[in-house]
Write a protein that binds this DNA or RNA. Structure first.
Lengths: 220, 220
DNA sequence: GACTGATTCAAACCGATGTTTTAAAATACT
DNA sequence: AGTATTTTAAAACATCGGTTTGAATCAGTC
């Protein structure tokens, strides 16, 4: 069988096209032309444009080395250094040149214009990362992972990262001098990690202080 | 003239539709139907779908009380309290029910699928907010507004906010229990402000320490 | 009340695009 | 070889959606 050939060629091309333009705006004719296959091939193999899209999502998520990203066994001993490693990895995944910026760009489009595959995308792309961050954060501030404050902190960390993903084009205009070299990426990752750790520890201290205060209040 | 009537009705309806579905996916027929005007009205009054869109942008940005948001004379004396006020205002703008979530949602769509109006949107919607945050941040860490570190910090603050705008649908799934009451909004704003101020002050301290270290090194 | 210009309307136009169809050719499997 | 599965090619189909058109209506003016 060389269904291998045609099918995967479509999948990979479609991945690029969908990532560039989103599901709606992507044209089946364009995909087929770029993949060098016949127009009817999409319907033959995937039944549907949406069918192709869903398959692309699964293909992209599995093939894109995503799994490695939320490996709990990240290098570094302290929660802080783990956090830093995680942030850097995510940033590299976002800004890696040849690396598949696929899933991220697909996410951007899904956020603006959810397709029926949205829930699947959230589960496969976002949730693992969100959970990983929550666990890391929980480690730093010493609270359970499903705690309200932990979640707020996770949002804070996540936000700092994805602003570089979703705000890419905006950033180009608001800060045109910024070049994205590997060193810059490290610099940004370090900044986010330092910024976040400071915020986290401060909240930890505040919690402790709050508890002391409560004791005082109830004691008097 | 009752161009008033038809034209503004189209503008307001179009604002909603564009915000919901983005420029590409928005249908002129849909807009006209909802506005209760004839199909040809759009072309007659605005020449073009894109012409309508650009007009909507101007209309939305001017009418939506956006200007108040980046008012430099924010309440609060310290930079910290100003920052907190700013964050809260932005969040309210994002999650206000009847308030125009317009510009924000339009931004989301522009990010995923830029139209020829993208530069204008950035200038009118994003840049003022970004500049305001940069100034606030600069005030907290005591560095110039166009400093590299200031910009990184501004990104950090901005990211924490817009994750609630762009990640809205994701958040619904990742944290379904979260209700968006006004109190919750305040809570989130307080969290972001506290988190950010801690990060900012820590960087300020680190800068000072770095300078001391440099002196030591050059001295020896 | 007739003229003029602006506005509105219904209908048609037309290109783009997802999908299907038909037949033939190429390939893989037994 | 023979059969089933893929692939190609070209065309047609159907629908959607932006745009255009030409007639009808309305508002203001002489």
């Amino acid at each position: 069988m060389r269904r291998d050939n045609t099918e995967t060629r479509i999948l990979e091309t479609a991945g690029h096209v969908f990532a560039e333009t989103g599901f709606q705006a992507a044209k089946v004719r364009d995909i087929c032309a770029r993949a060098g296959v016949n127009l009817a091939a999409v319907n033959y193999h995937f039944g549907d444009k949406l069918g192709l899209y869903k398959e692309v999502l699964r293909y992209a998520c599995c093939a894109a080395g995503n799994a490695a990203t939320f490996d709990p066994a990240l290098p570094g001993r302290t929660p802080e250094s783990k956090l830093r490693g995680f942030v850097r990895k995510l940033l590299q995944q976002i800004y890696g040149e040849d690396r598949p910026a696929w899933p991220v760009r697909l996410m951007t489009h899904e956020l603006a214009q959810p397709t029926p595959a949205f829930d699947g995308v959230v589960d496969q792309v976002m949730r693992p990362k969100h959970d990983a961050i929550r666990n890391l954060v929980a480690g730093v501030i010493g609270r359970p992972a499903d705690d309200r404050q932990t979640r707020l902190c996770a949002q804070s960390v996540m936000g700092q990262i994805i602003v570089y993903a979703h705000g890419r084009e905006v950033l180009k205009r608001l800060w045109p001098d910024l070049q994205f070299t590997p060193e810059t990426l490290d610099e940004i990752a370090d900044h986010i990690a330092a910024f976040s750790c400071a915020g986290l520890k401060s909240l930890g201290r505040r919690n402790a202080a709050g508890k002391r205060k409560e004791k005082k209040l109830t004691a008097r």
